[in-house]
């Protein structure tokens, strides 16, 4: 453990700088959201493709399969739910059948209830509450490798035109993406860890990388306040790059000042 540069009484050692950086994120994000100035945001092909892919399914008379991951309420799942809300809205508006396989882990039970509410609300908001069918949101299993063949079964039986697979899908992601590919569905995925991304990139038509998924809710909402918050991510990336460069120079000059500062 690197020695902290200094400590504050009553304060956990090694966490002061972390807290200050977090507070700064909060202040900047709230400030940008308040100003609601829409910054330049590069296109995210995987998110842009969702509308076209659902449209393709509609034209072909095929369903859309969309899942938000197997995990509990972590940030991947929350991002996955935002994307599910968007897909449900388009499906409700275009009268396209939406199938949402749920489950996958012991932590997934609680998320399912939120997902059902979300999809039901999307259909209600589109003025078609009667079109919502909870049977199209089957709970497959709380076990990952029982969920996987259940999901594969849906893909093979229903032959969807589009599969949107986001949130925290783990090793089963590859089985699902390859199978969606095999049944001719447009496959839009999101990798939630490094090795997963590399494998999914081989099997998907479109893939969301890195922070594209956590930012998806803001990107798809087109709400200026939410989109403005994405600016903070860029500012912090510049801070991270700057810190890495200064740290690199300092270490090569024989100083561990940056290490000790970050350990404060």
């Amino acid at each position: 453990m690197t020695n902290a540069l200094f400590t504050l009484p009553g304060f956990a050692e090694g966490r002061l700088i972390g807290l200050l950086l977090l507070i700064l994120i909060f202040v900047l994000a709230i400030n940008f959201m308040g100003s609601a100035k829409v910054p330049y945001i590069r296109r995210v092909p995987a998110l842009d493709a969702i509308e076209d892919a659902v449209g393709r399914s509609t034209e072909m008379g095929k369903p859309v399969v969309c899942s938000y991951g197997c995990g509990g309420f972590d940030y991947w799942t929350i991002a996955g739910l935002s994307i599910l809300g968007y897909v449900a809205k388009i499906c409700a508006e275009t009268d396209t059948r939406l199938i949402v396989p749920t489950g996958g882990s012991a932590s997934s039970y609680i998320v399912r209830e939120a997902a059902v509410d979300l999809v039901r609300n999307a259909y209600t908001a589109a003025g078609r509450p009667e079109a919502f069918n909870e049977d199209d949101m089957p709970f497959l299993s709380g076990e990952q490798y029982a969920y996987t063949p259940g999901y594969v079964g849906i893909l093979v039986r229903e032959r969807p035109g589009t599969m949107v697979m986001t949130g925290s899908h783990w090793s089963e992601a590859m089985n699902l993406a390859e199978m969606a590919n095999a049944v001719g569905a447009v496959t839009i995925t999101a990798g939630c860890y490094t090795s997963n991304m590399a494998a999914l990139a081989c099997a998907s038509d479109y893939i969301m990388l890195g922070e594209e998924q956590p930012a998806a809710g803001a990107y798809l909402s087109r709400d200026p306040a939410q989109m403005a918050s994405i600016r903070v991510q860029d500012i912090y990336k510049f801070i991270a790059i700057g810190t890495i460069l200064v740290g690199l120079i300092a270490v090569n000059l024989g100083s561990d000042i940056i290490n000790r500062l970050l350990a404060t």
Partner: peptide, 16 residues
């Protein structure tokens, strides 16, 4: 940043 949007009530899909 997603957390900030959740806490400020901007991103609410996770609540259904």
């Amino acid at each position: 940043v997603l957390g900030v949007r959740m806490l400020t009530g901007k991103e609410v899909a996770f609540l259904g």
